[in-house]
Design a binder for these strands. Structure first.
Length: 274
DNA sequence: CAGTCGCCCTGCGTGC
DNA sequence: TGCACGCAGGGCGACT
C-alpha cells in the first residue's frame, strides 16, 4: 500500500481534480474501516462546502473543505474521481458526491484505512491528531535523529517504521533506504554513528524523492488519483528480491523478518564495519 | 518503559 | 479444479 511517495502522488494528482468542487452529498457502504466512518458528522457539516485544498502529512491525506477530512489509505485504500452514474465497485466504501456530477470515491478491499473528520475550526484538533507524529523526512535532521534514538536497542529498520520518530516511511522504503545507506537493517539503532545517520537520512530523502518522481511503487493494486500505476518498483534494489543477485555486488539478497515485517537486504553491501 | 506480537480484512499466489 | 495456507504497502492495542 501507499507509503509516503504514493500518498504524495495521490495528493498531487487529486488536487486539480477536486479543488473548487462543491460537495452535495456523502454516501457510505455502511461497512466500517479500521474505525467507523463518521458519516453522520460529515453529512451534518459537508454538503454545500467547497474543497479548498488538499495536503499530505505522514501517510495521511488532509482535505480542507470547511472542516478537515483526514484520510488514511491503509494497505489497499485508493481515491479517485468517477462519474456519479458509474456504479460503485465492490469495495467502494465512501463516496463524496459533487454538484458537478462526479464523485470522489474511497475504495479499500482490506478496510485497513481510516477516515476522520474535524468540523471547523480544526487547527487545534489537527495539532492534537498529529501530536505524536514524527517529523517529515524532508524536514528532519540527522543529529536530532541520533539524539532521539540514543539508547534505542531495537533494530534500525524498526526505528524507521516507527512513525513517532520519522513520518511516512513504510516497509518498502525502509529496506531500500537502508540498502542505499549501506546499513544492515538488524543493527541496533543506538549503534549508528553520526556519519551513518547522515548517510541514512540522505538515502531516505533520495529514495523518497525518486519514488515521488516515479509516481510511487505499484506492487499489486496501488494506483494514483488517475488510476495509473507507479513505476519505482523497477528501481527496487532489495525489496521483494530475496534469492536474486545484488545489482551492486552480485551477492544474494537475503530476506528476514524484523518487527514482524519482511525485510530485504544485501548481506555484503550492508555489512559495513562502521 | 521499550520492544515484539497478534490482529483487523480481503485477495492472490503457491503447493498439495 | 479446488482447497488450505501463507503472505501482503499499516497501525494499534495488548502483551512480556
Amino acid at each position: 500500500m501507499p507509503e509516503l511517495p504514493e500518498v504524495e502522488t495521490i495528493c498531487q494528482g487529486l488536487a486539480p481534480l477536486i479543488i473548487g468542487k462543491t460537495i452535495a452529498a456523502i454516501k457510505s457502504s455502511g461497512k466500517s474501516l479500521r474505525q467507523p466512518v463518521p458519516l453522520a458528522e460529515m453529512t451534518a457539516a459537508l454538503p454545500g462546502q467547497t474543497i479548498k485544498g488538499i495536503r499530505r502529512r505522514a501517510k495521511y491525506l488532509l482535505i480542507e473543505c470547511g472542516g478537515l477530512l483526514i484520510i488514511h489509505l491503509g494497505m489497499t485504500g485508493n481515491l479517485g474521481l468517477f462519474p456519479a452514474k458509474m456504479p460503485p465497485e465492490k469495495h467502494c466504501h465512501v463516496r463524496f458526491h459533487f454538484n458537478s456530477g462526479d464523485e470522489l470515491r474511497y475504495r479499500d478491499s482490506r478496510r485497513f484505512g481510516r477516515i476522520v473528520f474535524f468540523p471547523a475550526p480544526f487547527a487545534e484538533a489537527e495539532r492534537q491528531f498529529f501530536a505524536t507524529t514524527g517529523p517529515e523526512p524532508f524536514a528532519c535532521d540527522a543529529a536530532w535523529l541520533a539524539a532521539k534514538t540514543s539508547g534505542m536497542q531495537a533494530p534500525v529498520k524498526a526505528a524507521l517504521l516507527n512513525g513517532t520518530l520519522i513520518a511516512g516511511i513504510g516497509n518498502i522504503y525502509a529496506s531500500e533506504s537502508l540498502f542505499r545507506a549501506r546499513i544492515g537493517p538488524q543493527r541496533a539503532t543506538a549503534s549508528l554513528t553520526m556519519a551513518e545517520w547522515q548517510r541514512l537520512l540522505a538515502a531516505i530523502q533520495e529514495v523518497l524523492r525518486e519514488a515521488i518522481i516515479c509516481g510511487g511503487s505499484t506492487i499489486s493494486d496501488y494506483v494514483n488519483a488517475q488510476q495509473k500505476s507507479g513505476c519505482f518498483q523497477m528501481n527496487f534494489m532489495v525489496y521483494g528480491r530475496s534469492g536474486q543477485t545484488c545489482h551492486q555486488c552480485g551477492a544474494t539478497i537475503t530476506q528476514t523478518r524484523i518487527a514482524g515485517r519482511s525485510t530485504f537486504f544485501c548481506p555484503q553491501c550492508q555489512n559495513a564495519p562502521e
